[in-house]
Design a protein around this nucleic acid. Structure first.
Length: 354
DNA sequence: TCTGGGGTCCTAGGACCC
DNA sequence: TCTGGGGTCCTAGGACCC
């Protein structure tokens, strides 16, 4: 039996949360972005998008594109609070909810009898509870559901079979699909593959030749909207990190080391709050040419001790000793030990062991 | 004035073990 | 001397997602 999967995506989520408390801004170009020189836009209202402002547009560029736009600083506490309301609402309607970030979730509606009617009810319930609009896509897989929700927003509702998805997006560029980013899209274009139709029709062997056996086969399956991934439950983070981009590039270890120590302290504070520890301590350095360099070291015993993390992070940084100006510094603790939060459901626990 | 921050997964090569 | 074959763990880089 075919599955019935829904993907719910909140419309312009951060901006929409801001508009709840600033209703007078409704209908105006509104942008949520940090204020630093190198900040980027996190969310733009649909009015602002008409000026060419989207997520990840540099904030300075956004100001030039639309000087009259209202710029608001991000308030993640508020977004997290609203997100919790959204996800609670979903869970009152559906057992199997996979949360993806603050503003997205997959729902497994298989076996509900009338999945579309259920999805309609859920959409209404989310808006009634939060005052926020969302878009829902429905399909036999996460892939179809996701693409459908993207295709019909804002305030969208679109159900597609796999065949319908293939036909509807036949002429769309491969980059439409989640999992095909700019690099892969460019490589495909270089081979003359500019549409999903063309990609779906490319023999497996050819793609395996170009992209390797795994990625090659994966790409064709995506283009045919074939996807068996289950709707997962709640996920526990495997690593945690803290990073910062400087207003102006920094040069030399004496300037960098204190920053690394502070980032380590902040990271350890967060880990300690969750009672989590990790075995692998890593650093990340982005240079002025945008190249990224990482170093990592694993220890036998997991830690979240600030002295230990600072010591290792600074040692790794000294080993790197970047000669070019540094744009970003980051520290990471990975290989986190098991379960911080109180045990959720028995089912989740069982899944974790696989 | 280009290009944030927090994550995940994959690959490839080397070390090491049996 | 001309040299296996797995399996696992680790590191570094890269692509991608929200």
């Amino acid at each position: 039996m075919d599955r019935a999967i829904a993907h719910l995506d909140m419309d312009a989520f951060y901006v929409s949360v801001e508009l709840l408390r600033r209703p007078e801004l409704r209908g105006l170009p509104v942008v949520v972005a940090g204020s630093s020189a190198r900040a980027v836009v996190t969310t733009a209202s649909y009015e602002a998008r008409r000026f060419g402002i989207f997520s990840a547009t540099p904030a300075e560029r956004a100001r030039r594109l639309c000087p009259d736009a209202v710029f608001l600083p991000p308030d993640f506490e508020a977004y997290r609070a609203r997100s919790r309301e959204v996800m609670e609402t979903l869970r009152t309607h559906v057992d199997q909810v996979e949360v993806v970030g603050l503003d997205e979730a997959y729902l497994d509606l298989t076996g509900l009898g009338w999945p579309k009617a259920a999805a309609r009810r859920i959409k209404g319930a989310v808006t009634a509870r939060t005052g926020l609009a969302c878009s829902i896509g429905i399909g036999p897989s996460k892939l179809v559901a996701k693409v459908a929700s993207d295709a019909d927003k804002p305030d969208g509702f679109l159900a597609l079979t796999r065949d319908e998805a293939c036909r509807r997006f036949a002429a769309s560029p491969p980059g439409l699909l989640p999992g095909i980013g700019p690099k892969t899209a460019e490589r495909l274009a270089g081979r003359g593959i500019a549409s999903l139709e063309a990609l779906a029709a490319t023999p497996d062997e050819r793609l395996a030749e170009w992209f390797g056996p795994r990625l090659g086969v994966h790409l064709v399956r995506l283009a045919r909207f074939e996807d068996e991934r289950p709707v997962g439950g709640s996920r526990v983070a495997k690593s945690e990190s803290r990073e910062t981009t400087f207003e102006r590039d920094l040069r030399g270890l004496p300037a960098l080391e204190p920053v690394m120590e502070q980032l380590s302290d902040e990271l350890c504070r967060r880990l300690a709050l969750q009672e989590r520890r990790g075995r692998t301590i890593g650093i990340k350095v982005r240079l002025d040419d945008f190249s990224i360099h990482t170093r990592a070291r694993s220890a036998p015993v997991p830690t979240n001790d600030p002295d230990e993390v600072r010591r290792v992070a600074v040692e790794l940084l000294r080993g790197l000793d970047p000669s070019r100006p540094v744009r970003l510094l980051g520290v990471r603790v990975a290989g986190l030990d098991e379960e911080p939060p109180p045990p959720a459901h028995g089912v989740d626990q069982l899944e974790m062991t696989f």
